Each structure stands twice: as structure tokens, then as C-alpha cells.
Computed example of a mutant assay.
Amino acid sequence: MTRPITLPFYAKLSFILVTLICFAFIFCIGKDILTPILMAFLFAVLLLPIFNFLKTKLKFPRHLAAIVCLAIFISIVVGILVFISYQVTYMANDFETIKKNANSFIVEIHKFIRENFQVSIGEQKKYLDSVTKDSVKTGQAKLGSFIISISDVLLDSTIMIIYTFLFLIYKEHFKLFFAKLIKQENHGILQDILSQIKVSINNYIVSLIIEMIVVSVLTSLGLWIIGVKYFVLLGLITGILNLIPYIGIFIAGIITVLASLTGSGEISVILGILIVNIIVQFIDNNLLVPLIINSKVEINAFVSIMGIIVGGAAAGIAGMFLAIPLLAILKIIFDRIDSLSPWGYLMGNHVPRKFAWRKRKITTDN
């Protein structure tokens, strides 16, 4: 019987860090391939309860159950996009009103700057003209890349649908593959890891959907109170964009301010929109995220923020969205492997007890 090899701490730490760096490097250079796969994996886990219900309870064939799951998912997404498109088209009818109110709002801003910063309106317009010329040139240069990016999004969406279908029908095949990788006596740990990953990711995505709905309802209610037109559409857009960490809420705020110009260009309305967004974000960050999101994934705020920043730098918005689920998967794996359990504890949000250091008397020989 061969004895297990015992490595010193620095060797274990080096192996772990090198492994993590290799995974991060592979993800960075292959993000265009790996991002759709990982997104499809999340969608497959989300649809897995429906898939199992259709296959076990209703006795659907495996392929038919996967097709029905995807049809339901695509129908919901397309329904939301059609509603937004219809509302945006309806809003376009107020373009002249938006233009008129935007001009009056800009005039008010010019007056405010002239009275408080002693910059004449002529100097402000001259500066804006120079900035506008540069923006037009930049916009013309980026128009082609924008069209290419739209086609990339459509292609990635199609690939994600195909990957999701394959994940659903080959679920048991992948489980057997992982079982063949490890020894039989560790199959119980593997089963525990896979079941916890499924539960954690499913809870996380459902929690994001609940958060999106609550933010949409609160924003719509606030905009309705202050008298903003298209408050339902703007609330829904805010809830969807809020899923994008950091930058989503700012984009939603800009869209809401522009849309408010369909009613009036008064500064009080714009201030009301800012106040509504601040209040909703306060509720979201201090109540919804701790109670709904963090309680499901059990990742502390420090690791979450670092993961989101690294994910955004590696793969943009998709990387920011994937950061928390990937961290949750890593924590589940770390917690169930003895040598990696300290790293799992570091990533968690456990309230630490007071640690008593063992004191040892240091003696010196003269």
C-alpha cells in the first residue's frame, strides 16, 4: 500500500496559487469560447427543475423535455424584449417633446453655470461644439464595430441556446465523467459537491430574478409618484440593468432622466428621479442583497467585489455576471476538501469567533 505524499505548507500554497493562475489565464485567453459555455451552464441549472419534472413526472423523452424547457425560457425572454421594444417605439412618438424639453433643460444648465461659475453662455457653447465634433468623429469610427458587436451578441445567444440544450440532455453523462476521474471512496464527496453546486447556483439565479422584480416594482412606484411618464418601462429597464454590477444603475439613471423629458424639463423632476434611484439602491444594497443574494451564495463582500472587478477586467459585463456563481462553486469545492478548507473559510461570510492564540515560551541558549 502506497503512503500519501505529505508536502510542506509552502509547496501546497504554491500549487494552489499556480493552479488558480493557470485557470485565470486560460479563461482570459479563451473568454470568447468559455463565456457562452459558462452562461449556458447557469441557464441549464436554472431550467433543471423543469427538465426533471417533465422527464420524471410527465414522462417526456429527454430531448423533448429539453426542447420544452428552452421554449419556455426563450418565450419569457422574447416577451420581455417585445414589451420593451413596443414601449420604446411608443416613446419615440414623443421625440419632439423630448427635444424641446432637452433644449429648455440645457438652457437652465447654461444659466446655472453662468451665475455660479462666471462662465458665459458663448464660451460654454464653444466648448460643447468642440466636444461634439470629436464625439461625432469617434461615433462614426465606432459605428462599424457596434454593428459587429451586435452580430456577435446574436451569435453568442444562439450558441448559448445550443449549449444549454446539450447540458440538459448530457447531464448524467457529465456526472459519470466526474465519477470516473476520482476514486470510488470519494464518490460521496463528489455527489455532495455536485448537489450543493446545483442548489447554490439555482438559488443565486432565482434570487437575482427576485431582486430584479423588487427593484423594478420599487422604481416604477417611485417614478409614478413623482409623475414620470412610462414609469413601468423605466422601472423594468432599471431592474434589468441593476443585474450589471456598478455600471448598470448609472445607465438606467441616464435612460430614466432622458425619458422624463417626455413630460417636462423641470429640474425638480430630474432631482426626484435621482432621489428615487438613491432610495431604491439603498434598499437594494442594505436589505435585498444581504437577505436575498448573500444568504444564498455565502460569499463575503470583499471577495465578491474583487471577483466582480477581476471578472469585468477579464470578460467585460459577462465576466462580472459570472464572477459570483464561479466564486460560489469554488467555495463549495474548497469547503469539502480538507487541504483547501481554509480558503473556503476565507471566501465565506461566517462571523468569526474570538481566536485564542497558543502562546509558547521562547527560550534562548546563552
Rank of each mutant, 00 (worst) to 15 (best):
N103S: 08
I106R: 01
I84A: 03
T56H: 14
M91G: 07
F83E: 05
N103W: 00
R62G: 13
V78T: 10
Y90G: 05
Q87D: 07
V68Y: 14
V78S: 11
E96T: 03
F60N: 01
N103Y: 01
F95N: 06
A71V: 10
Q87K: 12
A92Q: 13
A102K: 07
S75C: 12
I74S: 10
I72D: 02
I76C: 09
F60M: 12
I106Y: 05
F83K: 04
A92G: 07
Y86N: 08
K57M: 05
A66L: 11
N103A: 14
L81T: 05
V78W: 04
K55M: 10
K100A: 08
L64H: 03
A102I: 04
A92S: 15
L81M: 14
F83Y: 14
L70I: 15
I84E: 10
F53L: 14
L70N: 14
D94M: 13
I76H: 02
F60E: 04
L58P: 00
V68W: 12
K59C: 12
L58N: 05
R62I: 13
K59S: 15
V82F: 14
K100M: 03
S85E: 08
A71Q: 03
N93S: 09
N93I: 04
L64C: 02
V77P: 01
L54T: 02
V88Y: 07
Y86W: 11
I72F: 15
K99W: 00
N101H: 14
I80H: 05
V78N: 03
F60S: 08
T89P: 01
L54A: 03
V82I: 13
Y86T: 08
I106N: 04
N52D: 14
S85R: 07
I106S: 03
A92V: 03
F105T: 00
Y86I: 12
P61F: 10
E96Y: 03
I74M: 10
N101F: 05
S104N: 14
L58M: 13
I84Q: 09
V78C: 09
Q87S: 10
R62S: 15
S75R: 04
L58C: 06
S85P: 03
E96D: 15
A102G: 05
F95C: 02
S85Y: 09
V77F: 13
